[in-house]
Design a protein around this nucleic acid. Structure first.
Ligand SMILES: [Mn+2]
Ligand SMILES: [Mn+2]
Ligand SMILES: [Zn+2]
Ligand SMILES: [Zn+2]
Lengths: 150, 150
DNA sequence: CCACTAATGCAACAGTGTTGCATTTGAAGG
DNA sequence: CCTTCAAATGCAACACTGTTGCATTAGTGG
């Protein structure tokens, strides 16, 4: 049952990658799979620590960076920096959904939490500026990280 | 004239540091001075490249990190990450003004630009979460960085 | 199955930030 | 002034994140 689901997701990731016009490699499939399954954006370190599927060898550190860059370049993943200055990646499909609400970013653990409020429309920009993304972020400590504080 | 102004600002920085209850050192005065004079948040690298005042020796790299941390710890400076994942620091006084408007963050150069629109009020948070900062950011390329692109 | 390009693995490197420890210095009191 | 002592500094070494160069491997299209 769990196996069947995993296989289905694997195929879908492969299909997305093929449709994007780049080579379908084990690394890309595994990484996109992980991104699509994740509920929060993942850092490079977190993905490197992912359990290798079924007897699959671990992905090389540099290759993982390049796989992530390639997924971003072909539009299948998004890249953004967390509050600690570390890049986090998410599957591109999930951003349409995340564009519709506000986020809370924990300064303690770098985690990203989805809130239910929706962001306001963007204001006008100065001449020559190109808007790529709108982000209405709340920063602070999540319930876990703020537990010990006064 | 310029000398008189500089002296005045130096004194004010010293006074702020003294009032914060920490030792007044050359490094702290110079750094807080630079932060108060800056129109945008400054990175560690940018501050390290600052011209040494008048025959003053350059500040040690590690000491600069510790000076910045101490200014943040005593509430005289703010620390936030830019779109490239590098920390930037600003004088604490300047944030009251920056809290009243929206910012554009350039993904090319990491620069921060102040817009005239004001941010909307924050939504409710889940139980246990502590809000420290609200940020309504627009991301993209500034006029300089986007010049060469199609 | 072949050929050809894109992707990978490995080593070495760069930038940013941290830790440990010996030395210096600011500030408080004598 | 001079003494004292915690706090701040300078330096070396380190950790983490991300990049570059280059030889080898593996997709893909024929
Ligand atoms: Mn979300
Ligand atoms: Mn501003
Ligand atoms: Zn947290
Ligand atoms: Zn720019």
């Amino acid at each position: 049952m769990a196996r069947a689901t995993a296989t289905t997701e694997d195929s879908l990731s492969s299909e997305l990658i093929r449709a994007a016009g780049v080579k379908v490699t084990r690394g890309r499939v595994r990484v996109l799979d992980a991104l699509r399954a994740a509920r929060q954006p993942l850092s490079h370190a977190e993905m490197e620590a992912l359990p290798a599927g079924a007897g699959d060898a671990a992905i090389d550190r540099v290759t993982l960076y390049r796989v992530l860059d390639s997924l971003v370049a072909c539009g299948l993943a998004l890249k953004a920096v967390d509050t600690r200055g570390v890049f986090r990646f998410s599957a591109a499909g999930s951003q349409r959904q995340h564009a519709k609400h506000v986020h809370f970013r924990c300064t303690g653990c770098g985690g990203v939490f989805c809130l239910k409020a929706e962001p306001p429309p963007p204001p006008r920009l100065p001449r020559g500026f190109r808007l790529q993304q709108v982000e209405f972020d709340l920063r602070g400590l999540c319930a876990g990280c703020g537990a010990g504080t006064s």
